[in-house]
């Protein structure tokens, strides 16, 4: 697993984008204290999910309001039609580790990394 950040870098109910991995991922801390990671780029159009509204373990894309599960990456409603990848997280002390998904990312048209 890859150390992606420290727990203290995360803010409750907010996401942080990390482009130290490709494609960039978004790491979230929920109000319940859980940490999740999904691909940061919405599958519909290039937007950073880390900037979205976090509620009930879902994040709403700031551009067109499709929401994605922080647990599975599943999308709820258009305009995004495909989910994002979810990544496995492990927190050890203050260190946050990620196991990136082996699946191919669902990037929006025109976005390449």
């Amino acid at each position: 697993m890859l150390r992606i950040c420290s727990l203290s870098e995360l803010v409750e109910d907010e996401g942080v984008r990390f482009d130290t991995v490709t494609p960039p991922i978004a790491v979230f801390l929920t109000s319940a204290g859980e940490v999740y990671a999904i691909d940061d780029t919405c599958t519909h159009q290039d937007a950073s999910l880390a900037e979205g509204w976090v509620e009930d373990c879902r994040v709403e894309c700031p551009l067109h309001a499709s929401t994605f599960s922080l647990l599975t990456g599943d999308v709820d409603s258009p305009p995004a039609r495909r989910g994002v990848r979810a990544h496995r997280i492990e927190v050890v002390g203050d260190d946050v580790y990620v196991q990136l998904s082996a699946l191919a990312p669902n990037l929006p048209p025109g976005v390449e990394y």
């Binding site: 780029t41 290039d46 937007a47 950073s48 900037e51 700031p62 551009l63 067109h64």
Partner: peptide, 24 residues
């Protein structure tokens, strides 16, 4: 968030620009 209806420039509740088509 506050999203402009013209080109979807999008601001969070503190006013920060958080999204726009191709912003990244």
């Amino acid at each position: 968030n506050f999203q402009c209806g013209y080109h979807a420039w999008t601001y969070d509740l503190d006013g920060k620009l958080i999204a726009a088509p191709n912003l990244t």
